[in-house]
Every structure is written in structure tokens, then in C-alpha cells.
């Protein structure tokens, strides 16, 4: 006879579904990335996911855990996928491979596997890469398709990624550049806002620039996750709210600093707010805690971007707040029914 414990009814959500939904929610943004910046993102994603699955399988075997049971939960796939979205699309092939290995082996399994990692694995992978290979990580971003002098095929992207400068330095130069955030931050020292906005990267507006489409579609994906109740509103709202507030306060003069629209739409902000910072394992848990956690990320993003050396700062902001998550949890416990009131 079976004598299981209550509740006997279980809801229809599963870890797999959660992972799959988050993955699916990134797809519109992913499609826009390929549309605007070429096939490099697809190659990145394939490389990262393949590396992640192989690494996860090997390490599960080493740890004597059931391989298929855990491989099937989709968490390794999602980690690799999110990392691939964050990497420069035309970086050498070993960039996504090393980043994914760092994420899966070091950030995830050395801490005990799914559910036990104190840091967001994808962002650990990203940080390792950014510190170890700063040139590849900052110069190999894609030129928006409309700005490129000629159209580039999947094969061109593959050649740049797998063979790189050895094959054709001119091809690499023709396909890559720095991110808009980086460009604006560096060039505003010498140009004023009006001149900068007249540059090809910024002047063509909505149809060219690309990043605001990508960000907008990430936002859409994030709203889908909210609607599905896979994430709560607290972290994204806190991230975007605090970043907007700081940008309005300190970046009111576009001749001096990167303006608020670029902060929100020009980089990885939306991806970070809805898909990275909301990683439940490494975030704060209570609703109030999530607000504090998200606000911290938004503040750090602005601070690092404005006064630090890195043009985009989502990874470091998230990792720093991961450190703080246990402390935040300790101080933001929700009020229990019947406590403190009569």
C-alpha cells in the first residue's frame, strides 16, 4: 500500500518547464540579435550549449549523480544559452567554450550543482572571460547589418569565429566594432551629444541601431515570464527603476555622460533585468529582498558604467549583489501571519 504524505495533488509546473519557458522567452530577442548582428550569435549559442551539455554530463558522471535525470532539467542548457546571448557574436570560438566551462564546472557543480550555486553561473563565465580576454570581449561585437559595407553570410561569421585574424583581418574589421555604450562613453570625451548622435551608429535611428529592438523584445519576453508567473515583478522593476533614477539624476546632460535611453536600451540592461538578475538560485528570495537586490544591481550597473572601466556592467553588478543576497535575505524576512499585530 502507498501511504504518501499530503498534499496528494501537485501543480503542473516542473523545473524543466520553468527552464524551457525562460529559454523560450529569450527567443524573440535572440532572433533580433541575429537579424541585426548576424549569425555569430547562433554559432555562439550552439558552441555554448554543446559545451554545457557535454561538461554537465561528464561532471555528473564524476559526481555519481544520475546523468539523464539532471541533464534533462534544462538548467545547463539555459545557463549556456544566456551566456551566449551576452557574449560578443564574433569572438573566437574558444571564448564561448571557456566561458561555458567556467560557468558549468566552476560556478555550478563545484558548489554542488543545481540549486546550490551562490553566483549566477552565466555571469561567472562572463566575468572570467572579460577579465581574462578583455580585447576579444570588447572589440568583437557585431556591426549592425545596415552599417556594414557588404552583406555577410553564415560562412563569413564562421570564418571569423573559427579562424579569426589568421584568415582575413579585413573581414574581421569589416564585421566587428565596439558596443554603442562603449562608443558613446569613449567618444563623448571629444564630441558633444549632437555630433555623436550624427554618427552613423546612432543617426539612423530605430531601423539601424538594432539594440533597442533587441532590448524591446527582451522586455516582451520578460513580460511573458511575468504573465506566466515564472518571475515576479520585483527584481526587474527594481533594476530598471534604480538605473533610470540614477541616469536621470546624473546623466541629465548628454554632452557629459551616457543618457538614460542608451542605459536602458543600448546594452544588456533588459537581458539582465528580466533573465539574469531573476535567476532564483542566486538572488534574494523574499519580495522585499528582491526589491533591495534588484535596486542594488541597477545602482551598480550605473556606477560601474559611469565611473568604472567597463562599458557594460550587468555581469559585475549581478555578481556583487549575489554576494549580498544572503545578507539581504536575513534582513528582509516577510512578516508572518499573526506576528506584530493583534
Amino acid at each position: 500500500m502507498l501511504t504518501p504524505s499530503s498534499p496528494h495533488a501537485v501543480g503542473n509546473q516542473s523545473v524543466q518547464q520553468v527552464m524551457f519557458s525562460v529559454w523560450a522567452a529569450t527567443l524573440p530577442g535572440f532572433a533580433a540579435l541575429i537579424w541585426f548582428f548576424g549569425w555569430g550569435y547562433l554559432i555562439n549559442a550552439v558552441l555554448a550549449v554543446a559545451t554545457a551539455l557535454v561538461a554537465e554530463a561528464i561532471i555528473l558522471r564524476l559526481r555519481r549523480r544520475p546523468v539523464w535525470f539532471f541533464l534533462g532539467d534544462g538548467s545547463a542548457l539555459l545557463t549556456a544559452w544566456l551566456l551566449a546571448l551576452a557574449l560578443p557574436p564574433l569572438a573566437p570560438w574558444w571564448i564561448p567554450v571557456i566561458g561555458t566551462l567556467a560557468a558549468i564546472v566552476f560556478a555550478k557543480h563545484l558548489y554542488g550543482g543545481l540549486g546550490n550555486n551562490p553566483f549566477n553561473p552565466a555571469m561567472v563565465g562572463y566575468a572570467v572571460l572579460l577579465i581574462s580576454f578583455p580585447v576579444e570581449m570588447t572589440t568583437r561585437w557585431g556591426i549592425p547589418a545596415a552599417l556594414a559595407t557588404e552583406a555577410h553570410s553564415l560562412l563569413d561569421s564562421a570564418r571569423v569565429i573559427f579562424a579569426g585574424l589568421r584568415v582575413d583581418p579585413a573581414l574581421v574589421d569589416g564585421m566587428t566594432m565596439a558596443t554603442p555604450l562603449d562608443v558613446y562613453k569613449n567618444d563623448i570625451a571629444t564630441l558633444d551629444a549632437a555630433e555623436l548622435r550624427a554618427e552613423p551608429l546612432f543617426s539612423a535611428g530605430w531601423r539601424v541601431y538594432g539594440w533597442e529592438w533587441v532590448s524591446g523584445l527582451y522586455l516582451l519576453g520578460g513580460l511573458y515570464l511575468l504573465w506566466r508567473r515564472i518571475i515576479t515583478w520585483h527584481i526587474p522593476v527594481a533594476v530598471l527603476g534604480s538605473l533610470t533614477l540614477l541616469a536621470l539624476l546624473f546623466s541629465w546632460n548628454p554632452d557629459l555622460r551616457v543618457p538614460v535611453d542608451l542605459h536602458l536600451l543600448g546594452g544588456a540592461t533588459m537581458l539582465g533585468a528580466f533573465f539574469i538578475a531573476t535567476d532564483p538560485v542566486s538572488a534574494a528570495t523574499s519580495n522585499r529582498g528582491k526589491l533591495v537586490f534588484g535596486a542594488g544591481i541597477g545602482i551598480l550597473i550605473y556606477v560601474i558604467r559611469t565611473w568604472g572601466n567597463y562599458p557594460d556592467a550587468v555581469a559585475f553588478a549581478v555578481l556583487l549583489m549575489n554576494f549580498a543576497a544572503p545578507l539581504i535575505d536575513h534582513y528582509t524576512r516577510p512578516r508572518v501571519y499573526g506576528e506584530g499585530r493583534s
Partner: peptide, 24 residues
């Protein structure tokens, strides 16, 4: 249906959202 085998907690916080007593 019999619940499938338990997986590790991913700290998703769904439990906290539905707890009527306000617990963690």
C-alpha cells in the same frame, strides 16, 4: 498522479508567493 521524484530546490520562490502564513 504520483508526484515525480524530487529535484533540487532552485529557490524559485513560488512557495513563498503562495504561503498563506507569510513564511519562507
Amino acid at each position: 498522479p504520483t508526484p515525480p521524484p524530487a529535484k533540487p530546490c532552485i529557490r524559485c520562490g513560488q512557495c513563498e508567493q503562495v504561503c498563506p502564513a507569510g513564511l519562507l
